Simulated scan of single mutants.
Amino acid sequence: MAKPNKKGPVKTVDIFCSKCGVKLFRYRKGGKGALVKCFKERIAEDFTEELGVCPQCSSVFGRDTLIRGTPALKMVGGKIRMK
């Protein structure tokens, strides 16, 4: 399978914790669907100490995985909000 585009999309979205509302990171998202996975190379700004864990309420919102041979976060449904 093909790897994701290195440069990625220009449009960025803010990702928030749905439980406490703290800003987790800014992500260069392509398309208009739901956020199911986040490629690590597309994360523009990261506000978490540990990737996949909310810094304020310590809820786990993503699991570390490889998708198409590229490091990514697989999102847990309902744990994040996107603006």
Rank of each mutant, 00 (worst) to 15 (best):
A72F: 01
K37V: 10
Y27K: 05
T48E: 00
K40R: 08
E45L: 14
N5M: 08
L35C: 14
K11W: 10
L24D: 03
A2M: 12
T65Y: 08
M82Y: 13
R68T: 01
K79S: 10
R26N: 12
N5I: 06
G69K: 06
C54M: 07
K29V: 06
I15H: 02
R63D: 06
M82R: 15
F16K: 10
V60Y: 05
I80P: 01
R81A: 09
A2Q: 14
G62F: 04
I43N: 03
E45C: 09
A72W: 01
V13F: 11
P9E: 12
G8C: 09
E41S: 07
C54G: 04
V76A: 09
C20F: 12
K3P: 03
G21S: 14
K23T: 09
G52N: 02
V22I: 15
N5V: 07
K40D: 00
I43T: 04
T65C: 10
M82V: 15
C20V: 05
G77N: 11
F61W: 11
C54A: 07
M1T: 15
F61Q: 03
G21I: 07
I80Q: 07
C38T: 07
I67D: 04
K19C: 05
L73I: 15
V76C: 10
A44R: 13
K6C: 09
E49M: 06
C38K: 02
T12L: 13
L35F: 11
T70P: 00
K19L: 09
I67N: 04
V60S: 04
E50M: 00
K3C: 10
F47E: 03
A34E: 14
Y27I: 02
K79E: 04
K23I: 07
I67W: 14
K11H: 15
L35K: 11
K32Q: 13
V76W: 11
R63T: 01
A72Y: 00
E49Y: 05
K11N: 15
I80D: 06
V10L: 14
A72T: 02
G31Q: 09
V60I: 10
V76Y: 13
A34P: 05
E41A: 04
G78R: 12
K32C: 08
M82W: 12
L24G: 03
K83G: 13
G69V: 01
V53W: 03
P71T: 00
M82D: 07
S18T: 10
S18Q: 12
E49P: 02
K19G: 09
K6V: 13
G78E: 06
N5K: 11
K83A: 15
E45F: 14
F39I: 01
G62Q: 00
F47Y: 15
E49W: 05
M75G: 02
V10T: 13
E50S: 02
K29H: 11
M75Q: 03
V22L: 05
F39R: 04
F16P: 01
P9H: 13
T48Y: 00
R42G: 02
S59I: 07
V10S: 15
P9G: 15
L24W: 04
E49C: 01
D46E: 12
G77Q: 10
K19A: 10
G30A: 14
S18F: 09
D64W: 09
I43A: 07
E49G: 06
L24T: 03
K79W: 05
V53P: 00
M1L: 15
D46H: 14
L66Q: 03
P4T: 07
M1C: 11
I67S: 08
